[in-house]
Every structure is written in structure tokens, then in C-alpha cells.
């Protein structure tokens, strides 16, 4: 058994694709129409093209909003991405106008920061020490 795909709900698939590719630096992998307006839309990291795909899933189900609002209020991220240097990535993303709700903090063996993906989610970026 392998983890091939994971997903986040997004308010707007087109905007999520733009943020993931133009801001975070991911690459579109699959884009297949499903139903009238939804798409099976996935991105991957160019550093790991055969790695886990991230599905940008429409947030239309009525349970999604209360679920995400409650987590956002407490600052809880819905996905975590690994970066080589959290502080450098934080500076780069801030330069692109990304909002952080947690600046880089060294927490024992890991340094983390948390950003707003503009599509309804908090995303944690993390660097493992050593």
C-alpha cells in the first residue's frame, strides 16, 4: 500500500491552481473535467514528479465550511509541505504577498511556519533539522 494522493478542499479550483503553481512552485499533473464545473485537478512537486499528488478538491459540500472555519480559527493547518529552509521560503513567499499566521519558529527538531493559501486553508511548511 502506498500514499499516491492526498487532498485539500479549495474554495476556487482555478485560483488554487494559480496559487499552487505560480506561488508555491508546484506543477499541474492531472486536469480532467468532472461534472458540469468541477475538475479532477492535481499538482506535484517538480522536485518529486513521481511523488504524492495533491488533489485540489472543490469545497462545495456543506460540511466543509464549518469544518475549515473551526480549524482556521485555532490556526490549525490542513497540510504540511517540506522545504529545505523554512526561513528562506518564508522570505520568498512574503515577497510574493503571501500571508503568514505563524512566522518561522524553531520547535525542537523542526522549524515551522504557517501560511494562508487564499483558498480556505492554512498550510504548514517545515524543515527537519540535521
Amino acid at each position: 500500500m502506498r500514499i499516491r494522493l492526498t487532498s485539500v478542499f479549495v474554495d476556487d479550483q482555478a485560483e488554487a491552481l494559480r496559487f499552487c503553481t505560480e506561488v508555491l512552485g508546484f506543477v499541474k499533473k492531472h486536469d480532467v473535467p468532472v461534472g458540469e464545473k468541477d475538475r479532477w485537478l492535481t499538482v506535484i512537486s517538480p522536485e518529486d514528479p513521481d511523488g504524492t499528488e495533491l488533489l485540489l478538491e472543490p469545497a462545495g459540500h456543506p460540511a466543509v465550511k464549518p469544518y475549515r472555519d473551526a480549524l482556521a480559527a485555532d490556526g490549525i493547518p490542513l497540510a504540511q509541505f517540506a522545504v529545505d529552509d523554512v526561513t528562506a521560503e518564508y522570505e520568498r513567499l512574503r515577497g510574493l504577498g503571501v500571508r503568514f499566521v505563524q512566522e518561522p519558529v524553531e520547535m525542537g527538531p523542526v522549524t515551522t511556519a504557517v501560511l494562508d493559501d487564499t483558498c480556505g486553508n492554512l498550510i504548514q511548511i517545515a524543515t527537519q533539522a540535521g
Binding site: 485555532d74 490556526g75 490549525i76 520547535m107
Partner: peptide, 10 residues
């Protein structure tokens, strides 16, 4: 200026 999540993490 920390979220609950950040305080818990720290």
C-alpha cells in the same frame, strides 16, 4: 500574536 495552534506547538 499567536494562534492556539502555535501556542500548543511551542
Amino acid at each position: 500574536g499567536q494562534t492556539l495552534f502555535e501556542i500548543c506547538s511551542r
